[in-house]
Amino acid sequence: MAVRVQEADFDTGAEIAALSTGRDDVGAVVSFTGLVRGGDVSEMVLEHYPGMTEKALEEIEAEARVRWPLEGVTIIHRVGPLAPGARIVFVATASRHRAAAFEAAEFLMDYLKTKAPFWKKETTPDGAQWVDARETDDMAAARWQS
């Protein structure tokens, strides 16, 4: 399945390989992995809206496939408690040529950050706090709307 929401960790190498294994029409695979930043943060908890999350991610994937000629797409987002350094999100795109794969991967992340119903809560020495949405994320998503 191209879209997965799960508590479990994932194997980035296996996910990247799966996009081109057994086929010769893929000339480029681009992947992005998002990690929990440490520093003051001792734990992060990811909450989501079961049902809508999967639907939103599938819509984002469908939108990317309309815009670019993609041979494959994988989106994985983890939920639940995560420690610093843990993988949170993975996006990979496969295409015949690199430009489409690069652009589509960036588009998927920009859209995911502003449209998929996930919420982060960080624990720092000051206590646990919900992360505020960032205007820069909205701006990053908006540039694809022209």
């Binding site: 998002g34 996930f118 505020d132 994320d137």
Partner: peptide
Amino acid sequence: VALFPPVTGG
């Protein structure tokens, strides 16, 4: 109907 703060995934 779901009500929630702006999303912060990724």
